[in-house]
Design a binder for these strands. Structure first.
Length: 781
DNA sequence: CGGTGTCCGATTTTT
DNA sequence: TCGGACACCG
């Protein structure tokens, strides 16, 4: 019956059995945190708490799903399915839908993803006539994100001279106006961005005490996982909800806080004890995951951080192998070494590729690894990067669906209004925008009732717009009473979304058609799954799921063992027997952006700590002396983090470089035991080299990517030149052109349809002209 | 209006 | 080095 308590160690068990009151579980890496969380919920349920009364917030959808499943195994699936469990964003999106009218939003509001917000910001900056160099949309958006996560509304911003001053100093005096316009436009479009899901929840709870009261009463037990990564906005929500019953349990590890860059506030966990004076604290300090060498190495590293909670991770696991450090000359060699090492380990130790992971600081580093793995014939999968749902063809279809549900969704509408091409161009769109602004209506409202405006749009264009409106309206009718899959299928057919692609026939087009097909299949699965669980399976629900899905939520259909490649951020919460952490170099890891302040550097160190503690059996670190970055070959120095690990736990695989004549490489001094102050060396900027890499470029073999993974740029088959050369044109020829007049050919380049000539015209100067189009008459050769 | 070529910026991490 | 945004021509 309560046998689930048996396998727990004393602190774990104590945490599980503590049901009431505020509590914090400080859970070191690999200390069985998920287990404790799972069992604690099961324990609550077994002790008479209603599953509807438990709210459990996790960091990823995947974590939520897994936990739900595990709880189901203890208490039964039917009981588990009523739990409110999910990410902050998905749980509160759900609540916001049911309360949307209070905030003036439609319950079918759209969730803008980052691509949508960038596009919107671009148009705002353009429309406001601001310089796009001073107002970089990404920078503006991240500033706005900061505001929102700290509950600084437009109004609050305007009343805050300090912020205004700061933005003025940063050459962005219009920041407030941009912020206002952005918020207004989202609101008009019935759209929320990621931050709005939290901000609007706060608004809801503050402005409507009865709503707050309702959810306080409902969620008598609140649990938050990865508490160290919550931002201020999330903090306030949790606090408000738990205020009545004070049954709040947060779990986290300050040493694994790695999301400060997007607003996570490590003080939320550091100060939890101050927020709830009668808090009960539980520390899970025994690591069950890794060898003691790994645990001790990680400990010796994280000790270098000043701001941390007091805890000591220990393990009774075997010592295992030491952390192995490999030094290579180039990033290419690093890749080859990793691939070889994985190959040999898999062979010698009888491991499958699932047991291996390659972790890196930046996505760009994956390329060298991919090349090497591919060459070695090792299967791999990349997490992160462009997700399935971000692909053009998928976004196009989703945009149609979004418009059906919420025609005011401006970004979706702009995306599809002329795709497939309907002859509705920029000029028309500009006119519509102006009208929308003038009449304070959405674009779609204007389009569907052109007559009531004095908009000057010509007959043919008018017809096109009317046709578009009719198409959408009739699809909207289809959308009623049909499920998500049926609607999408209908859209594909009626709109002719994949027609061009099917005709096209290039491998790339075929792939796109397959992707669309896969989305349709995905929708079928979604509907079935949701129905089984008695959950909302509407189109709205599907779109929400997609908007909040992360790369991890892709379902893996291919189960051949593959090496996992991902950024360290993505690796949090995962574990692998063999872990390779690559690119251990200054300015890469720690990132050049993070070495200026202590807190940023400490976050990088925590990131490294997270990376190390992913490894169960063996951990490898590698760095290269040269690396291609920004298309240039640059010199690199070993990361300072390498020498922050206690030597006792380290083994160098390559001869150290101090005594050898390292001719072209300036000695970084890393392995020297000299007395030169480290800073002097470390902060030296890498030198850009002009020397080209001597290695012969590897020939890329066509490679079929596994499903759902980041797409490798399709290698378009070189277009064969079947058409006859347009003209026999050579340098020196005298030619005439209808528009440019007479000139002399300077050079001819390119092949087939791409033949172009550089011609120096007497009157208009030098032009490059594609012979396929331009009619050049040869006057003299 | 639509397709193609050119130029510019990106590379810190993402729910 | 590569992809996206923009300009320009037909």
């Amino acid at each position: 019956m309560s046998d689930y308590l048996e396998g727990l160690n004393p602190p774990q068990r104590a945490a599980v059995e503590q049901m009431e009151g505020p509590m914090i579980i400080i859970a070191g890496a690999g200390s069985g945190k998920t287990r404790v969380l799972t069992y604690r919920i099961a324990h609550l349920l077994k002790n008479g708490v209603d599953s509807f009364q438990i709210l459990s917030l996790t960091f990823t959808n995947k974590a939520a799903r897994e936990m739900k499943e595990r709880i189901g195994k203890v208490v039964g699936q039917s009981e588990a399915k009523n739990l409110w469990m999910g990410t902050f964003h998905s749980v509160f999106a759900r609540i916001l839908r049911s309360e949307a009218d209070k905030l003036g939003y439609p319950s079918s509001f759209t969730i803008y993803d980052s691509q949508d917000t960038v596009r919107l910001m671009n148009s705002i900056i353009k429309e406001m006539g601001l310089s796009k160099d001073q107002y970089k949309s990404k920078a503006i958006l991240s500033r706005i994100s900061q505001f929102k996560n700290n509950l600084i509304t437009v109004k609050a911003y305007r009343n805050n001279p300090e912020l205004i001053e700061a933005d003025t100093m940063a050459m962005r005096p219009q920041m407030g106006a941009v912020y206002k316009e952005y918020v207004d436009r989202c609101f008009k479009a019935g759209a929320m961005d990621f931050d709005d899901l939290l901000l609007r929840t706060n608004e809801l709870l503050v402005r409507f005490p009865d709503v707050l009261s309702k959810y306080q009463d409902r969620f008598r037990y609140v649990m938050v996982d990865e508490y160290q990564d919550t931002n201020h906005s999330q903090y306030l929500i949790v606090r408000a909800l738990a205020d009545r019953f004070q049954n709040i349990c947060v779990v986290g590890d300050d040493s694994q806080s790695i999301y400060a860059f997007r607003g996570a506030n490590i003080n939320n966990i550091l100060n939890f004890q101050k927020d709830y004076p009668d808090v009960k604290t539980f520390k899970l300090e025994q690591n069950y995951r890794s060898t003691s060498n790994i645990v001790e190495a990680a400990n010796s590293l994280i000790e270098k951080n000043k701001t941390r909670l007091d805890k000591t991770i220990f393990t009774s696991n075997d010592a295992g192998g030491k952390i192995k450090i490999m030094r290579t000359l180039s990033d290419g060699e690093e890749g080859r070494w990793v691939a070889n090492s994985i190959f040999e380990n898999a062979m010698n130790l009888q491991k499958t590729y699932d047991d291996f992971a390659i972790l890196y600081r930046t996505n760009a580093q994956s390329r060298a690894m991919e090349d090497a793995l591919r060459k070695k014939g090792i299967k791999y999968k990349i997490f992160g990067g462009l997700s399935f749902y971000q692909r053009k063809e998928i976004k196009d279809l989703l945009a149609y669906l979004r418009v059906l549900i919420n025609p005011n969704d401006e970004e979706a509408l702009k995306r599809i209004i002329n795709y497939p091409a309907r002859g509705i161009g920029e000029t028309t769109m500009d006119k519509l925008s102006v009208a929308a602004n003038h009449y304070n209506k959405s674009l779609f409202e204007i389009i569907s009732d052109l007559e009531s405006t004095d908009i000057k749009i010509q007959g043919p264009t008018k017809t096109k717009l009317n046709n578009f409106a009719t198409l959408i309206q009739s699809l909207q009718i289809t959308a009623q009473g049909n499920n998500a899959f049926q609607v999408a299928d209908e859209v594909v057919k009626r709109v002719g979304l994949i027609k061009d692609l099917q005709v096209d026939g290039t491998p790339e087009a075929v792939n796109r058609v397959e992707n669309v097909q896969e989305l349709l299949n995905g929708m079928k699965d979604f509907i079935e799954e949701r129905k089984e669980q008695d959950l909302d399976s509407s189109l709205t629900a599907f779109l929400e799921d997609v908007a909040l899905a992360s790369t991890f939520d892709n379902k893996d259909e291919d189960d051949t063992p593959m090496v996992s490649l991902m950024t360290i951020h993505l690796a949090k919460g995962l574990e692998f027997p063999y872990v390779y952490i690559v690119g251990m170099e200054e300015t890469l890891f720690p990132s050049a952006m993070s070495v200026n302040t202590r807190s940023e550097l400490e976050e990088e160190r925590r990131l490294f700590y997270v990376a190390l503690t992913r490894a169960e059996t063996q951990c490898y670190l590698s760095f290269a002396h040269t690396r291609y970055r920004w298309g240039k070959l640059i010199d690199c120095e070993p990361s300072r983090f390498l020498e922050e690990i206690d030597e006792r736990y380290i083994e160098h695989l390559a001869p150290q470089r101090n005594k050898v004549v390292a001719n072209r490489f300036v000695d970084s001094g890393l392995f020297d035991d000299d007395d030169i102050p480290r800073d002097k060396i470390r902060f030296r900027k890498p030198v850009t080299r002009s020397v080209r890499n001597q290695e012969t470029p590897e020939k890329k073999t066509p490679f079929k990517q596994p499903q759902n993974l980041r797409k490798v740029t399709p290698q378009l088959a070189q277009q064969m030149n079947t058409s006859k050369p347009a003209q026999k044109l050579a340098a020196g020829n005298k030619v005439s052109h209808a528009k440019f007049g007479v000139g002399q050919v300077i050079s001819v380049e390119g092949a087939g349809v791409n033949v172009k000539a550089e011609v120096k015209f007497e009157n208009v100067g030098t032009k490059k002209i594609l012979l396929q189009f331009a009619k050049l008459n040869i006057l003299e050769s």
